[in-house]
Amino acid sequence: MKGKRAIVTGGGSGIGAAIATSLLAEGVRVTLMGRSLERLEKQQALLMGEVAIQVCDVADEASVKAAFAAAGGVDILVNNAGQVETAPLARTSLETWQRLLQVNLTGTFLCCREALPGMLEQGFGRIINVASTAALRGYAYVAAYSAAKHGVLGLTRSLALELAKKGDLTVNAVCPGYTETEIVENAIATIQAKTGRSAAEARAELAASNPQGRLIQPEEVAAAVLWLARRESGSITGQAIAVSGGETM
């Protein structure tokens, strides 16, 4: 993998940062993309290896086009940027619905579209979409997020078939369960605020959905992404790899 070029969206923290670390360890040149320059610069300083950064709002077509043009080519695209918000459907505004679809689903589409011409020209490419177990099953109070992630999985499967005879190009999804990230910390805070439970109780409630009784670590998700990114994984395409301790099968 040495010398390959990777773009990781949402690369400023959490799963994205762990994925960048694993790719860099293999000699991959990584470009981190995200909305916050400050967060990207902080992560860049922490990582060892050839790391570039590009400010990019994946929900904005012009921003995506500019960021990918500046990055200058990609062999491995990891669509990791995402956003979640909880609410009963009856209290989910149209603005929230559209924003979550725009970030989670349309953002993935826009990034795939920008990466594809170069991948097709060179006859090699790996697209790995970080979805969620919410792409594989429903969860209460996250209808917009779940709908978006189900859409990401549909996009993954359709694009995989579209590219199957176009060279060594694969498209897969990695579907983590509750992972030790800022998103889960926010979920814990929400549970505390709405139920009066302690942080430990809220954390235990989320961990209980995993048959192993724990939260997933970002490095575990990164390991699955790295496996799919390898040339040796060329026969694996259109798949949804659950990293969830057996929560989904």
Score class of each variant (00 low, 15 high):
52 A>P: 00
63 S>T: 07
23 L>K: 00
229 A>P: 06
146 S>L: 05
63 S>M: 07
158 S>H: 11
24 L>H: 03
247 E>A: 15
23 L>M: 06
181 T>W: 11
117 P>I: 14
178 Y>K: 01
181 T>S: 07
217 Q>G: 00
246 G>M: 01
42 K>P: 02
139 Y>S: 05
50 E>N: 14
153 L>K: 04
203 R>L: 10
110 L>I: 13
80 N>P: 08
205 E>I: 10
138 G>N: 09
154 G>P: 05
220 E>Y: 00
41 E>T: 05
5 R>W: 04
58 V>F: 05
178 Y>T: 11
70 A>I: 05
119 M>I: 15
7 I>P: 01
226 L>G: 04
77 L>Q: 05
39 R>S: 14
89 L>G: 06
115 A>N: 10
10 G>T: 11
209 S>H: 07
85 E>D: 05
102 Q>T: 12
130 V>M: 11
216 I>A: 01
231 R>Y: 12
239 Q>P: 04
205 E>Q: 07
20 A>S: 10
243 V>M: 04
101 L>H: 14
61 E>L: 06
136 L>P: 12
185 E>M: 06
223 A>T: 00
62 A>G: 04
10 G>N: 11
78 V>A: 07
235 S>M: 08
76 I>H: 11
133 T>N: 06
224 A>D: 08
120 L>N: 05
20 A>Q: 06
145 Y>V: 08
32 L>V: 11
226 L>R: 15
125 G>S: 09
218 P>V: 00
232 E>H: 14
